[in-house]
Design a binder for these strands. Structure first.
Lengths: 351, 351
DNA sequence: CTGTTAGCGCTTTCAT
DNA sequence: ATGAAAGCGCTAACAG
């Protein structure tokens, strides 16, 4: 709390390998072998101890720069994420950061402005400049048929979207998510359904919409229409208005994003439409705040952290020279029901 | 969309300075001077053009590793952020990332688990290993009187909290924020106030609570009590329950965080307490979702992006050798009123 | 105006 | 089992 004295001019002299060498009277190469526990060479136990002791005593930390320069490997990767307020991306990001930390690898987070998306190739220089070993591209947009010049020629994966070429896609099973929604709607006896989702340009939206339309065409007893709107509270509100104005109102709605759900619930409340009596709601995003909307909603719980972790794994595989491969993140997917609790009993989601 | 052919084994041969030198028949040092536009040396215009042309043609990108090793400067910084779901941190982070990008500097984002906070000194190795030039520590906890061993001896700033020593703090004016709240409460004629905020261990909470208590003691016509609860929906809900159980209910509540507000609003709705008739609400966090709570609330708009940007600036100043200095982010602070709009008129916050 | 040279801190053959 | 030496790609002091 700034109560202490000012810090003395903070100049830490970094300890180098040569400092440890001098302290032990050994050569740098020997010290290096010990500290890297090179398995191919043998060192005397006594020497080992001496080196380790000196390194600890001097607080030696290897210079990542020099090591990376020599090994032609930075041990870092870039994570390109959209600058969105949607909380699910934070979960994906955390999953990726944690897995990267586990695998001893630093992460450079690059935020992509949502209003002016740049092509993935724009991030290639980070690899060419040896800042990172590869790219995890988590921007949501579906690629237009990429011009060859726009192809990524460096190790990379696309996260939660598919890229222009096979072997670089790490995605979740959106079709199964739609299936869980439809199953819950059937359980509730809903037959006139709407999928309210984001812009078609978003790859996950595209896949969910396709699955929903396929179900509609399959000709069961459920009708499914698809409505696209901006993935914001505003978008959800406006879409709600439009849906309420229609002659045939849906009795079940799947909502692609949390902000849209917030806006939609506000619109329904404002119009006096009762949830769940008049309409049943299921969100494709999850968040603790779902228990506090004032109305019961369900959500499809997606393996978001696993998605981030799988992206890191797939990229590091490529960096290690393995051929690229597509990954379908299998993690657990559940339907979770969120109940607004009565007072004196705090609400807890139950599965 | 993975419709294209598989990518050929992606091996880009990186162009080095020596490649450009060979292509032009010049020496690497000359090429280096041209590309860095070294002001102290002069080069023939024709040579300049030749080098620039060759560099562009070969797609030369300088190796950041080698450059950083030579210059003893990585051009990167670490941003330590709490792993919270609170959306305001995202705004701070974006502010920092954007400013860093503007100043040509890469950012390594390190996420701090909220349940097991590590001391700031735990991140010092990132500097000692030359991964970054300095630290922006944005974890929320107030430092205990730090043991000298825990002091940071590398360039660093604390963001949105104060550290153990002066000269490293970049914070906003929380006292003024509390002032805006009290002023709005007076405008609404509220006299029995509660500040519902997070744990006291959080420095921003500490400062707001102190300002609120000072106002209470100042002996005007407003009473202010302070209630601490976890900064979650759950915490807001539980605190709401407690407040409703009291003999004298507050008629105005300031809420420290968005999740708490969500929980509190749910509790009030559930108990049939009318907003704003029975109680007026003001949030210290801002978010578009505030317009969709179903009840009118106000919020204190804080200069969050500026906070992040100022943190980066202050750190880079230190890296450039300037003495450390505390920063109070001055950016605009407003009281914003969020109205749930009637249907057919989408809600927009108005100032 | 341009080339030569040394060296940032580390790893890694190759000698001894 | 340890040491000597080369070199990763770049910059900067010094020559010419």
């Amino acid at each position: 709390m700034s109560t202490g004295p000012p810090l003395a001019a903070a100049c830490v002299r970094r300890t180098r390998l040569v400092d440890v060498a001098e302290a032990t009277g050994l050569d740098v190469s020997t010290v290096s072998r010990v500290l890297n526990s090179d398995p191919r060479q043998s060192v005397r136990a006594e020497t080992r101890e001496r080196v380790l002791a000196a390194a600890r005593r001097l607080g030696y930390r290897p210079n990542a720069l020099a090591r990376a320069l020599k090994q032609a490997r930075t041990g870092a990767l870039a994570l390109v994420v959209p600058m969105t307020r949607n909380p699910v991306w934070a979960v994906v990001e955390r999953g990726a950061l944690d897995r990267a930390a586990t695998r001893g690898c630093a992460v450079l987070v690059v935020s992509q402005p949502i209003d002016q998306p740049r092509p993935a190739a724009a991030y290639q220089p980070m690899v060419l400049e040896s800042r990172v070993d590869g790219l995890v591209v988590a921007t949501a947009l579906r690629p237009r048929r990429a011009a060859p010049a726009a192809d990524l020629l460096v190790p990379h994966v696309y996260l939660n979207r598919r890229g222009p070429h096979p072997g670089h896609d790490v995605v979740m099973d959106e079709e199964a998510a739609v299936g869980l929604w439809l199953q819950e709607m059937r359980r509730q006896g809903r037959r006139d359904l709407v999928l309210l989702d984001g812009p078609v340009e978003v790859d996950t939206v595209h896949r969910r919409a396709r699955a929903a339309r396929a179900h509609d065409r399959a000709g069961g007893d459920q009708r499914v229409r698809v409505v696209h709107a901006p993935a914001t509270e505003q978008g959800g509100w406006a879409a709600g208005e439009r849906l309420l104005g229609r002659s045939r109102r849906p009795d079940g709605i799947g909502v692609g994003s949390l902000p849209q759900l917030t806006g939609l619930v506000a619109a329904l409340r404002s119009a006096g439409v009762a949830v769940p009596n008049d309409v049943g709601l299921v969100s494709f995003d999850e968040d603790p705040s779902l228990s506090y909307l004032g109305v019961p909603v369900a959500s499809v719980s997606m393996p978001l952290a696993e998605l981030g972790a799988a992206g890191v794994d797939a990229l590091l595989d490529q960096v290690d020279g393995h051929g690229p491969r597509d990954v379908l993140v299998a993690g657990p997917m559940d339907l979770v029901r969120h109940q607004p609790a009565p007072l004196a009993r705090c609400p807890v989601p139950r599965r």
